[in-house]
Design a protein around this nucleic acid. Structure first.
Length: 145
RNA sequence: GCGGAUGGCCGGAUGACCGCGGGCGGCAACGUUCGAGGAAAGUCCGGACUCCAUGAAGCGACGGUGCCGGGUAACGCCCGGCCGGGGAAACCCGAGGGACAGCGCCACAGAGAACAGACCGCCGCGCUCUGGCGCGGCAAGGGUGAAACGGUGGGGUAAGAGCCCACCGCGGGGCUGGCAACAGCGUCGGCACGGCAAGCCCCACCGGGAGCAAUGCCAAAUAGGGGUCCCGCGCGGCGAUCGCCGCAGGCCGCUUCAGCCCAGGGACCCGGGUUGGCAGCUAGAGCGCGUCGGCAACGGCGGGCCCAGAGGAAUGGUCAUCCAAGGGGGCAACCCCUGGACAGAAUCCGGCUUACAGGCCAUCCGCGCAA
RNA sequence: CGGGGCGUAGCGCAGCCUGGUAGCGCGACGGUUUUGGGUACCGUAGGUCGGAGGUUCGAAUCCUCUCGCCCCGA
């Protein structure tokens, strides 16, 4: 993943090679959500819809274990389509999360990306990235005092 | 060339960069290599593997299969053949044993629907008010029906009828060919024997149950609990509270035989703890090549190859060129735009079934043209 | 991975086992009663029996395949 010495790039140059590895104190380590309870907690927190998908975001309590770092989960229910459609939607969401979250995500937060039928798999990839960045900005702003 | 039939194959390609999962090397950074399908699907069959159940034989129950022969680890699959049906042909389709073992059903219509029967009729005799009526014979013709108790033609007769004859069909036994299903031939019988078994059933054959969340190991943690219920701790003999022997009882739905058990065995509920790791987990009835046997399915032999192994679960994104398809423009070369069938491994194999844009190859049948 | 059930008129169901006529309630529509509405009464219409094949003279019913939905166990 991205180290702190790797400068944040703009969206359209996301394909440039990122070098540099993990540092022990890196606060932008991204892990995936696995527990059902985490998904439920994120669903109860704030959310924002975009044309290609829905984002849920939740700031974890500071006392929670492993509070540092960004965590992200993906949801593609049976409504998205058959197994091929679900997997493809999930993979595209995973791709934009990997590109956008190191730049726009905040440590200590959980994000859940929810796929939509047909749109998530077909929408322009750059548009999807822009959607996520804009949604994150709104979510963070709404949370600010 | 057009139309059709069958069998098989492909089902986007190549490259670049950023990423993901596994293996290998390395202390590490990192390098290197591999990474979805013909159906991975539905879960409809058959197995491997693991655990559970005293064993064997017979009987019973339940479920399945069903022309014959072969292939296979096995199958309800495949190949070849037979029979029946469809087609002009290539070819296709068929759950295709038994209806004298028994039971049941065959609506409506029709006279009659399974020991046949007589509505309209046909024939003879008698009567007659000339319309018909009565008695007897007949079952060919009409009508009903999905199906009406052999069919066609001739003889025969009062009218008729396998009453008689020929051919066909049917049934019995025989011969020939075939491993067999079955086919062919001739003979006897004058016809007796309707259909439904994907209705019960009979016959033959097959089948113990559960499933990788199986199962085994390691670690952690609580408890060494509470409650309800069922069966039982029997008898006799010999030797000084034990041992041996016999009987009874128990362990497969029943029976028989063998074996084991004997003072404990079993079922369920409540409460408490865990929701980790490793193995099973991918080299196999494996894939393709050559050769031999076989009509074929397939098998033998030889040498070659290694082809996903995740575990809340890996294949994504972008770009370029080419290929197929659709739309638009142009006389054309060509240009522009859209954009890729069905669909994603979860213990592993053999099949079946279902979904599938488009394309390729081979063989065969019919028609047309040319020779 | 394994097991079970359902699909019939707009809605909820019966009929299927044992094959020949698809029926019940609510609703809809029309009429009567009422000043009007409700109620009550009378009448009418409405169904590819989820889909495709097969067995049978004949299939909602029997058999096979398939689609969709629901439930249960490990």
């Amino acid at each position: 993943m991205t180290g702190p010495d790797s400068p944040a790039t703009d969206l359209h140059s996301a394909a440039v090679p990122r070098t540099g590895g993990f540092v022990a104190s890196d606060t932008k380590v991204i892990t995936t959500l696995a527990q059902r309870a985490d998904f439920l907690a994120a669903a109860r927190a704030r959310h924002r819809a975009t044309p290609g998908f829905v984002v849920q975001a939740r700031q974890r309590p500071a006392a929670a274990p492993g509070a540092a770092g960004i965590r992200v989960g993906f949801t593609c229910s049976k409504k998205v389509g058959n197994a091929v459609a679900r997997n493809r939607a999930k993979r595209r969401l995973r791709a934009i999360a990997r590109l956008v979250l190191p730049v726009h995500g905040r440590p200590g937060w959980d994000y859940v990306l929810i796929g939509r039928r047909d749109v998530t798999a077909s929408r322009d990839f750059w548009q999807l990235q822009a959607d996520l960045a804009a949604a994150l900005a709104k979510l963070h702003a709404a949370h600010a005092p």
